[in-house]
Design a protein around this nucleic acid. Structure first.
Lengths: 182, 182
DNA sequence: CCACGATCTGACCGATCGGTCAGCACCTGA
DNA sequence: TCAGGTGCTGACCGATCGGTCAGATCGTGG
């Protein structure tokens, strides 16, 4: 074997994405990934420090996009924050639906690990923006429904074109969040 | 030890529910459950054929409730099906939010196993009712957002009283699904 | 021609998993 | 009193997990 192909790194990422989206992160072993790539498990661990490093590299672009959105929303309040949050989040969810689908089944659990704490924090701030900065528990329900629902729909409708899925989701989200508060 | 208490069966169920809802099904070992109960792993497997049997028994009431709802919706069409599906599903989700929360992180994966195929089928029929029996892909997006969103909200707002969470969710769901199609 | 770094392998590690099994302690009914 | 069933234990099983390590195999520059 031993081909002089340094593309192995990329191939591992692609194989891991496929496996993670089917059997989940915990449900996928390094052996599974190695088998799909056609190399040894040790080769996988030559390119990545450990299993979690593969996941981290896979979702890095999505995380940085989430951080960008969070920064843009930080200065907005009320309805302005809300509508910007809707379109921003939907656009982000549609663009990164592959990443969502490979995380969806284990995101709540992974989020509890300290390494993923930044995502947790940004998501809470996103919910805050979707709630129009309201602190009332009742006003927090709709944003959570929207967030989780949009993410699930993106994972499920992976084959739909962006320009069909996106506007439909914006419509649903806007309706769900109802008229501006007061 | 060896107390003459056949309540162990119940204690195991309660302990498993607590663990599953925190660390997930796959993330919880029989050892974990045994430790929480204060018995041996072998004792757990004396009361239950295997790990999956614990989960099955835990969610049995929720499944039968889902089947009842499915039967009731079967004869309805259009807007009648839709509004009945909304209130029925929300009521069910609120009532069984504990079960949802202990499954939420792994439901998509568990559903792919043949043993959970009935749930899968009923859920699809529920989505069908929520879509007002429409076959258009675009009309399927909102129901999925609502279903996943409501489930996530129920898992998240476990401490809210039923009569506060339920109506709020019905409102959000009705809004999200928009006006009756034609 | 040879030394070297990059790439990769197979063998191996300790830990943990779900599950089995022989047998012990206890209660109950004959 | 004792046979038998219930509830449970600790020891153990094979499999698999994530991860390590010494060394084989290559292409390449000196």
């Amino acid at each position: 074997m031993a081909r002089p192909t340094p593309e192995t790194h990329t191939e591992i990422l692609a194989a891991a994405a496929r496996r993670f989206s089917i059997t989940g992160f915990k449900g996928t072993s390094l052996q599974d990934i190695a088998r799909e790539v056609g190399c040894s498990k040790a080769a996988v661990l030559y390119h990545f420090a450990n299993k979690e490093a593969i996941l981290t590299e896979l979702i890095a672009p999505a995380i940085s996009a989430l951080e960008t959105l969070d920064a843009r929303l930080a200065s907005l309040t009320g309805d302005a924050a809300r509508s910007a949050a809707i379109t921003g989040f939907v656009e982000l969810a549609v663009r990164f639906r592959r990443e969502i689908s490979l995380l969806r089944s284990e995101l709540p659990e992974l989020l509890q690990q300290p390494a993923f704490e930044p995502i947790q924090r940004r998501t809470e701030r996103l919910l805050d923006a979707l709630a129009g900065r309201s602190e009332l528990p009742a006003d927090r329900i709709a944003p959570l429904v929207v967030c989780a629902g949009v993410a699930a729909a993106c994972a499920e409708f992976g084959e739909l074109p962006d320009d069909e899925l996106g506007p439909a989701l914006v419509t649903v989200a806007t309706r769900a969040l109802g008229h501006p508060v007061h």
